[in-house]
Design a binder for these strands. Structure first.
Lengths: 260, 260
DNA sequence: GCTTGGTGTTCTGTACTGCGGGACAATCTT
DNA sequence: AAGATTGTCCCGCAGTACAGAACACCAAGC
């Protein structure tokens, strides 16, 4: 009678193991550059022959391709086109675009849309500053969330137990010497972010680059997202920050309201 | 004895049907916005219950997600992150980037990298013009190949039998009234492209936008790619075309030579 | 040179798993 | 209100996708 496992809304009542394993291989392909057959077999707990067959299958459908020198499989063209098609269709991105363009035009700096992916943020889209000297948009990039402005804003919105899961190991990854290196420091920074409503990034991801980021609230279902504004260090005076953050917050709210 | 089917180099000797069907569903997700269970079952020739289970599986791994109003499945966040990770890693893109930046800087117009996907071209990456009035880079977009400059350049490099497969139906899709509408016209245009070495796009994809495109030669294995230069109509005088095309050809060759 | 540990690849039998069919409920159409 | 489609669940059978072993291949290492 009463089903206890209701708290996992999408547990497949009738799993198809081979498909599950194949999808897990695809997910491995996201984090690793290439995968070997033995590697996959070990990691998924399946026989080498099975891993071989699954990878051949992925190769046949162009989801994977063999690296030259026939050593290991890497992600194939089907993933590229599927992914790009999915990105273009993403609700957040489509809805956010016009607002981002308005914001980029108003403050004349590069605006980027990001979403959380594990403990990282993925750059989903960006509108570059109209000025000749500007920060380039780097769609597709992955950065540690705690090293970016929008990433910090997103983290600040997370429930604390989820946050702890994301940072199990103590020495946090750093990109520059200004990056946040310890969990304690991160927690106090996030507290400040919650108070201020926005986050900053003062050369913590790239030297000479500063950013201001806010989270997009109420993204029902889809992973948490945010927008960040990036500028050359020399151009952003401290007294502008509040003003720019307000513009970003207005934009984020406008995006959130577009969800009917 | 003699295996006849040697001309299909990657036919999986030992197919895993469920995985194959699952991957085919993913491929459907690329072309359609959403798919229903009955739809998938019909198209793949499997029972509705099977389609249901496969889609649940995809949903569980976040490769698909249900559309609000619980009607139909659409592509999920896993596809987005997988795709973007794959794009960033793509050889062509990584290798082409520096050359594209140089070209964009030299001619001060927006440069785009595209690759063929069926009879369309997918925008893989772009470097925007430094000028204030410029054509925006639209990474991820899909356009009919015969309506874009680089697309035509890529088509011109294709063997004719492959070309015929791509255009079975006579009234070609058009985006503006200047788009090429018939196969005959396309063939003569492609002949000109082969002679000139580059292709043009005079308001055939977007009104007020002109482009110059070239194919990147010798892309062993990976799908055919090309680069295009897009500019506002008002800014591109006819006498500049040859010069810009030469710069683009130099760039394309430089990219091709990067492949060791 | 010949081992030794590691790969990727192919084959075959069997237990299990994922398939189809059917029944039900919830929608949308007419 | 009836009819047509849809998504969802369940169950029993048979087909399949798994593991295991055997083989070929390439590195190092002694």
């Amino acid at each position: 009678m009463g089903d206890v496992a209701l708290h996992t809304p999408d547990a497949p009542g009738y799993p198809v193991r081979s498909v599950g394993k194949a999808l897990e291989i695809l997910l491995m392909l996201r984090d690793r550059e290439t995968i070997g057959i033995a590697e996959a077999s070990r990691e998924l707990g399946i026989a080498r022959s099975t891993a071989h067959r699954l990878l051949s299958m992925l190769e046949h459908y162009r989801f994977a391709q063999r690296d030259t020198k026939s050593r290991g499989y890497r992600s194939g063209p089907a993933l590229v086109s599927l992914g790009l098609a999915a990105v273009v269709r993403m609700d957040i991105r489509r809805l956010a675009r016009p607002h981002m363009e308005r914001l980029a035009h108003e403050i004349e700096e590069t605006v980027t849309l990001m979403c959380l992916e594990g403990a990282d943020v993925r750059f989903l889209d960006s509108v570059e500053s109209p000025r000749p000297v500007r920060v380039a948009g780097r769609t597709g990039l992955l950065r540690p969330a705690h090293c970016t402005s929008a990433g910090k804003a997103i983290l600040a919105d997370l429930p604390s137990e989820q946050l702890e899961k994301l940072y199990p190991d103590e020495p946090l990854r750093t990109l520059t010497e200004r990056s946040i290196g310890s969990r304690r420091r991160l927690l106090t920074v996030l507290e400040e972010v919650r108070r201020a409503g926005y986050a900053t990034n003062l050369g913590e991801s790239d030297a000479g680059l500063v950013g201001i980021g806010v989270a997009i609230p109420n993204l029902a279902g889809s992973p948490s997202a945010g927008i960040g504004i990036a500028a050359p260090e020399s151009r952003l005076a401290p007294e502008q920050i509040r003003e720019i953050a307000d513009a970003a917050l207005r934009t984020a709210n406008a995006i959130a309201n577009t969800f009917e």
